[in-house]
Every structure is written in C-alpha cells, then in structure tokens.
C-alpha cells in the first residue's frame, strides 16, 4: 500500500464567522442527529432488527386476521361475543408487543455497540456536548423507527382489512380510535427506542442494559401482585411495561382518546427523564 505525499495545501485560516448563540447551536443539534443517523444506517444490525420488528407486526397481524376470517366463516369467531370491527382492529395490532422487544434491543444496541468497540470516545470527541449527543442518538432512533413502524402498522391494518373482508367482516378506517391506535403503536415504539437508549447510556454494556430493560419491563408486574387488587389496577397503567404507561395508545376499544394520549405522554415523560439522567451522568463520567 502506498501513501500519498503529506498535505501541504494551505489551510483556511478563518475558522468560520462567529455567529450568535442561537444560530451556532441549531446546526450543532442537526449535525449530531445526521451523524447518528449515518452511524445507525451503516451497520447491519439496524436493518436486521427493523426487519424483525416489521415482520413481527405484519406476520402476527396477518396470521391472526386469517384465523379470525376462518373462524368467522365457520361461525365460531369472536364476532358472536363482541363488536367485530373493534376485535379485528385489535388483531391488526396484535404483533406490536413482540416487535417491541426488537425495538428495545435496537435502542440499547445503538448505544452499547459504541461502548463495546470504543467508538463512543471517537463520537464524544466529535460531539463533546453530552446533551447534544444524547438528543442526537434519540432523534436518530425516532427518525428510523417511526416511519418503519408506522408503515408496518398501516400495512397490517390494510392486510387485515383485506383478509377479514373475505369472510364478510370489515375494518372501517373511520372506526373510532383505529387511526390513533395505528399511529400510536409507531409512536410508542419510537419512544421505547429512546427509553432503551437511555438505559444503554447508563449501563453501557449490551447484556447489562438488556437485562435492566427486562427488569424494568417485568418487575413492576410482579410487585403489583403483592398489592391489593384495586390499588394495583390504579397503579398498573402508569408503570413502564406491558399493560403500563403508553400501551393504551395502541388499544382500540375501551379507552377514551384523551386517556390514550395521556398514557403515551406518561411514557414519553419516562423516556425524557431517563435521557436527562443519562445526560447528567455522561457530563460527570469519564468517557
């Protein structure tokens, strides 16, 4: 391998005009997000995880839709017990839960992979502002996860509609809460990725962060069992995890629109809180 001669080209002496604080901050954030997007897109695992998540949503939804269609045509379906439209909508989003595991892994890995190889130090040297770094990673995750999960949810909704219509059922798009549930599932997944990335910043190791996520996700459920049932039912919707904060947003029936968004807001608040803690820890900690 040969190396070209050292660069002796004259360097620009002017290091850019010094601009006001607002105009010099904004490109900093935008650039940090762009850089994290390039990083996420240029490793194989991102594509694999997003594919797994998409397949989880689509295949599970389609499989359940087929099962509903078959049962309906045999006259044994849930249509006899409840509103058919509401049930088919729930079916369309039945794969979201499994996809979330992949999304959480993506969020964790987006940070811990940097720690595993030392890339985090190269990154911090380029973006020394820790808040900018955490926001850049979080925003890049949302930019990737949101459209993919939205596409997966809408695709599954459409596929479910087509499949159940063969059995005489339907999935009307103007059904209350359906669009909110489809969009909400994608928003929930995006926020989950940010939440998981926050754990990644705090714990740093892939195994440790994944284990922590699993703990945060499942432990409250076990603790709730110790509480009296009425209290547990009140607390449950505000804890992270299955059936907890944010999950109401991708439920179609049995919840008001306002309550669904408040629920998602609570989950977003958790993700924001963990990102703030991560930023504070990064500022104090040696990279």
């Amino acid at each position: 391998m040969t190396i070209s001669a050292p660069s002796v080209a004259p360097r620009s002496v002017v290091s850019g005009p010094s601009t006001g604080s607002t105009s010099s901050r904004t490109p900093g954030f935008a650039r940090a997000i762009t850089a994290e997007l390039v990083k996420l897109r240029s490793v194989r695992s991102t594509g694999i995880v997003l594919l797994v998540a998409t397949l989880g949503v689509v295949l599970m939804g389609v499989a359940n839709a087929i099962s509903i269609a078959v049962q309906a045509s045999q006259g044994t379906g849930p249509s006899t017990t409840g509103g058919p439209a509401s049930d088919t909508a729930a079916v369309a989003l039945s794969g979201v839960g499994s996809a979330l595991v992949a999304i959480a892994a993506l969020g964790v890995l987006s940070v811990t992979a940097d720690y595993a190889c030392g890339m985090v130090r190269t990154t911090i040297a380029a973006v020394p502002r820790r808040g900018r770094l955490v926001i850049g990673k979080a925003a890049a995750l949302v930019v990737l996860v949101l459209p993919v999960m939205l596409g997966a949810a809408l695709l599954t909704g459409l596929a479910t509609h087509l499949i159940v219509s063969t059995a005489g059922l339907s999935l009307p798009l103007d059904q209350p809460g359906l669009i909110r549930a489809l969009v909400g599932s994608a928003l929930y997944a995006s926020i989950l990725a940010v939440f998981a990335a926050g754990l990644g910043w705090l714990v740093r190791s892939t195994a440790g962060a994944l284990a922590t996520w699993l703990g945060v996700w499942t432990l409250p459920t076990f603790v709730l069992m110790l509480l009296p049932a009425p209290l547990a039912q009140q607390v449950q919707p505000w804890l992270p995890g299955p059936g907890g904060a944010g999950t109401a947003v991708y439920q179609v029936g049995g919840i008001s629109e306002a309550a669904a968004w408040v629920s998602l807001g609570a989950f977003a608040a958790y993700a924001l809180a963990i990102s703030l803690v991560a930023t504070a820890v990064l500022r104090r900690r040696d990279a």
Binding site: V38, V43, C117, G118, M119
Partner: peptide
C-alpha cells in the same frame, strides 16, 4: 475506537 461492522467510508462520513 471504531465499529468493526462499519465501512471506513461510513465511519468518516458520520464523523
């Protein structure tokens, strides 16, 4: 201090 699964080009592009 670089990700083993990223190409040299993308490593530099991100920075």
């Amino acid at each position: 201090a670089m990700h083993p699964g990223r190409t040299a080009y993308h490593h530099l592009l991100a920075l």
